[in-house]
Computed example of a mutant assay.
Amino acid sequence: MEQLRPIPNKTNQLADQVYERIKKDIFDFVFLPGDRFTETEMATRHTVSRTPVRDALYRLEREGYLQVSFRSGWSVRPFDFKRFDQLYDLRIVLELAAVKQLCEAESAPDIGPLLDVWAIPEGERLTDGNQVWALDEAFHHQLILATGNLEMARVHQEVTEKIRIIRRLDFTQASRVDITYDEHREILRLIAQRKAAQAAIAIRSHIEASKAEVHKITLHMLHEAKQRVQAGAA
């Protein structure tokens, strides 16, 4: 008997497309924290019906990027730097635990694939910030996965998704890209040598420096975006 193939749901496909576009606009500060809009306005903007727009907006609300009020419609959630700091602190706790486990494990962890990416000559390094950002996320998540603790990996992935909106900004500057390569290579070297204390110091410093940098860049980009809006309204 011929197996039936699932029929693609056009509404779901449109919702996915609208979701990606709106999320990109939030990440690129096209929509600023506090900006308000209705489902009808967003449907017009993306030339689709309100159904896929509504699905996309509720998905973004669940992820913490939007908030909804039945009286005033939708709005971009204000940046809560205290919440971001707490998420970064949780990330540090998880990655410190992972580094300790990897350094103290009976058998040496297989970090060869990570070394192939990060321990390379400067002339072979990637320079595109978006590519390095994706590799950086993978680096940190793979350290967690290497412990074999899937629950730790699940929580770490949730934290990563919640801070992605600001974390990616760390790779908008060439100097930060180079620093990421250097620091990742050093962290891997210390793990390979089973130097747990030094590896813990290195990864904590690495994450805290990134947190401070994205905080500064985010404030700067918000300021520039607001100035553009004010200039356009003048």
Rank of each mutant, 00 (worst) to 15 (best):
T38Q: 14
L90C: 06
V155A: 07
K100F: 13
A225K: 01
R45L: 15
I26G: 03
W118K: 01
L32R: 05
H223W: 12
Q67G: 03
D178F: 11
D136I: 00
T38S: 15
R204W: 10
D110L: 06
S72F: 12
D28Q: 12
L14M: 12
Q198I: 02
T44W: 03
Y58E: 01
R91T: 06
V76N: 00
D110M: 05
F139P: 00
T11E: 09
R50N: 12
S205G: 15
H141C: 03
S72Y: 10
R125I: 01
E137G: 14
R154Y: 13
A231T: 14
A202F: 05
A209Y: 11
H140T: 03
A105N: 07
D28A: 15
P113S: 11
L102A: 00
I120V: 15
I144G: 00
I7K: 11
Y65V: 14
F139K: 00
V155N: 05
A225W: 02
M221K: 12
K226Y: 11
K216W: 06
R228G: 03
C103D: 10
Q157R: 13
E208M: 13
D170M: 06
K195L: 11
G148P: 04
R59E: 03
T180S: 13
R204F: 08
Q193S: 10
Q3T: 12
A212G: 06
L102Q: 00
T51C: 01
A119Y: 02
R228M: 14
E2W: 03
R91N: 13
D116Q: 04
E151F: 09
L66F: 05
R71E: 09
I166F: 13
G64F: 02
I191L: 07
D116L: 03
A196T: 12
I144D: 07
L114T: 01
Q131L: 15
A192E: 05
A56F: 09
L115I: 07
F29V: 13
F29Y: 14
S75C: 09
D182K: 06
V177A: 02
L150R: 11
L150M: 09
A192L: 05
R164Q: 15
A153H: 06
A56S: 04
P109V: 06
T40L: 13
K24W: 15
E151P: 00
F31E: 04
E104F: 01
H206N: 12
I22C: 03
I166P: 07
R5N: 11
P52E: 02
L150Q: 11
L60C: 00
E2V: 11
T44I: 12
P33N: 13
L190Y: 02
T51D: 02
T218M: 09
H215K: 11
A225D: 04
Q157S: 15
V155K: 08
M152Q: 14
R194E: 09
K23I: 07
Q198V: 01
V99T: 10
I144T: 10
L190C: 03
I111N: 02
A233M: 14
T180W: 02
D170C: 08
M42L: 15
D25W: 12
I187Q: 05
S205K: 09
V68A: 05
D170Y: 15
G34N: 13
F139Q: 03
Y181C: 07
G64N: 09
T180I: 05
